[in-house]
């Protein structure tokens, strides 16, 4: 299992990297942690002739708290997110997702920017970013732009990034203080991709659900929001019945895939069960 031959550069800055991408056009691919790309290249399912390794660009790995948001550098590893006290305190949903990706070695190499750009509908981070209303900051030949998560994940393995754009930063709005989240992942073995996973973030005010976001993994060609369930719960008092009723609508409007791990029907059912369990865990109401 040896990849096809390619040429390689490891630029030291984002502008250099963008220039490399512009120069080599569709022949080029960005290499970050490599945990999505390298296995595909070894199977020769992906045969780029040019790799731009952004791993040596300074200052793309950080977790910082700003006034309105938490900023994560695109090269921040899953491990760094998993072990970040800041993320654990402010974004438990993201911390829990990080801790469940692959295994320890994969988490040491994989990056949040890479996971987002790969846009795998079974990936964990894309769903979290969607549920947390993240903004993704990309740098390209025409400068920098911000893309909302809901616009970023376009289709299976397809993001809104232009060919020569590179993710620089991911910004997640600071949730209000009376807000919490969780990521529940269902898979056959612990190291596997999710069959279905649910990212839920709930903000409460005086015993009522002020705002709820529910992201779904594995339920379609891209990460989805459980819009009907969110609508059903918003404004409701926290009570077991309300959570159940809303959860039952978690899969509304989705067309989940059929594969060796489950039918669309089973996935829709799992989405409802996991949504209810996530909401129960967050609100303590059962």
């Amino acid at each position: 299992m040896i990849p096809a031959a390619f040429d390689y550069v490891a630029p030291r800055s984002l502008p250099e990297a963008v220039a490399d991408l512009v120069k080599h056009g569709s022949e080029a691919k960005v290499l970050a942690g490599g945990h999505s790309l390298i296995p595909l290249m070894k199977l020769r399912l992906s045969t780029p002739s040019f790799l731009v390794d952004i791993g040596r660009i300074q200052d793309l790995s950080y977790i910082r708290e700003a006034d309105s948001h938490i900023a994560l550098g695109a090269l921040t590893t899953h491990h760094e997110i998993e072990f970040s006290e800041l993320v654990k305190a402010r974004l438990p949903l993201l911390q829990q997702a990080a801790a469940q990706i692959g295994d320890a070695q994969v988490r040491n190499r994989g990056t949040i920017g890479g996971a987002a750009a790969h846009a795998d509908p079974n990936g964990d981070f894309p769903t979290c970013l969607l549920a947390l209303d993240a903004e993704l900051i990309a740098v390209g030949p025409r400068g920098e732009r911000s893309i909302k998560a809901q616009d970023f994940f376009v289709d299976t393995f397809t993001s809104a990034l232009e060919p020569a754009e590179i993710l620089r930063e991911i910004r997640i709005p600071r949730p209000p203080s009376a807000s919490s989240g969780t990521y529940l992942k269902f898979s056959r073995r612990s190291q596997d991709w999710a069959i279905v996973a649910v990212a839920a973030q709930v903000s409460l005010r005086e015993g009522r659900v002020e705002r709820v976001a529910i992201g779904l993994t594995g339920m379609g060609p891209r990460p989805l929001r459980a819009a009907a369930a969110e609508r059903a719960l918003t404004g409701k008092a926290v009570a077991p019945d309300a959570l159940r009723e809303a959860s039952a609508q978690a899969a509304d409007g989705t067309q989940p895939p059929e594969d060796l791990n489950g039918s669309p029907e089973y996935r829709r059912h799992l989405a409802a069960v996991l949504t209810r369990r996530a909401l129960e865990a967050i609100t303590g109401s059962k």
Partner: peptide, 28 residues
């Protein structure tokens, strides 16, 4: 609980890597 070598009707092995063929790990 886990393992199955699955072929499609087209005669192709659908569980042809350790991503799809589920060998249990310590956590299982």
């Amino acid at each position: 609980l886990f393992e199955e070598g699955v072929y499609g009707e087209d005669g192709q092995l659908r569980t042809g890597t350790l991503v799809d063929y589920l060998v249990p790990s310590a956590a299982d």
